[in-house]
Design a protein around this nucleic acid. Structure first.
Lengths: 202, 202
DNA sequence: CATTTTATGTTAACATTGTCAACATTGTTT
DNA sequence: AAACAATGTTGACAATGTTAACATAAAATG
């Protein structure tokens, strides 16, 4: 039997299909839901076929994290740095960041988790331009805020890291269920945002 | 053969030993390093003996998380609320929090992770006094800061959550290796702290 | 075009893991 | 002392990642 409708021995672009399907699995049920058997079954392929394209399961995970970061960074519009209203740019960026985390909690956890995040260290850190595009957009915005006398003069990377910490912390607390927010999520976001700008001080 | 030095059929307090040893394993090599076989081997006991004290591996994990939280909360001195210098109290609390995370990254990840954190939701959330002692100490401090006109008047729980977000985010970024800090860790902490109080605004 | 080589996929087997059932031993109660 | 409960052991099972040996298709080579 050969060349039946969709029954070909060679899958042709199995590698991409594996990445796409794996990402869908993560998005739906979290990274622990990925089993090579389940993944291969979804693609009508044998378990071990995966090993022709990835050295190991970890290697595959590493690959889908890369893709996830690419898409994540691509989601941050460059024009945000060009806007006139810097405060609003920050607000849009922060809302987009936390919105992504809440819309894709499993993907977000995978991207910024540790189990796999340690592998990320090897190939990318803050000082690696290619791998932290989003963060560098934030730094650029902070620099602009300093230049326009909105922010105090200070190390822009440090200030950006502080902002990132807040967004990351809030995202994690929300998606991991440590904050039980019923209806005042907007209030929490607004207060977090305003605190970064003005502080809690009276 | 019976009653040889340390070879008794009944372990006597296996449950506590399991919890203690499991916590040590997590602390040393992370939660994924816990396998029931390895754990039982360390205690010179059979794999299935564990099931006389815990319904499942998840049940055991749930138990050690409880213990970890108890010890964590106990580490926050009550007197911190009594201090005269409120700002310093905040600083001590924040430094203690982040210090704990950096000293015990694997424990911290387990406590505030998701895989297991979702189980936490069942029995504890912000509004459960017994399970969020540390957070309630923070709320009390925020309340005091408002009462003494240091902080703006606002929902104390929201303000406390903002502070927690910052501490949690910074802790996670640090222990998961997303921030590569060489020598200016103190500068980052100080800026984070001051930002919460004064904001980044000029 | 025929043959060889490379790329890709399959099957069978293995070790590790959590879990359970059946059995063994010790401690407690009556 | 006898019955019962608590605790621990052994053997088995299914799910999983991984590897080795084999199979098939595509590409390269002459």
């Amino acid at each position: 039997m050969k060349n039946n409708a969709n029954t070909t021995y060679h899958h042709k672009n199995l590698k991409d299909s594996l990445i796409d399907t794996a990402l869908l699995m993560v998005k739906k049920d979290g990274i622990s839901s990925i089993t090579l058997r389940e993944l291969s079954k979804k693609l009508g392929v044998s378990r071990s076929a995966i090993y022709r394209h990835f050295d190991s399961k970890d290697d595959l995970i590493k690959a889908i994290i890369q893709i996830a970061f690419s898409r994540f960074d691509a989601g941050i519009p460059v024009e945000i740095i060009e806007s006139d209203d810097i405060v609003d740019s920050f607000r849009i960026m922060a809302k987009g960041y936390i919105g992504f985390a809440m819309d894709n909690p499993n993907i977000y956890r995978m991207m910024f988790g540790h189990e796999v995040g340690k592998q990320r260290e090897e190939s990318c850190d803050i000082e690696n331009e290619d791998e932290a595009i989003g963060f560098h957009k934030l730094i650029a915005l902070v620099q602009k805020a300093q230049d326009t006398n909105l922010f105090k003069k200070d190390n822009p990377m440090l200030q950006a890291t502080v902002i990132w910490s807040m967004m990351h912390g809030l995202s994690n607390l929300l998606i991991d269920g440590h904050i039980i927010i019923k209806d005042n999520l907007d209030a929490l976001f607004d207060l977090s945002f305003l605190t970064i700008i003005n502080g809690l001080k009276k």
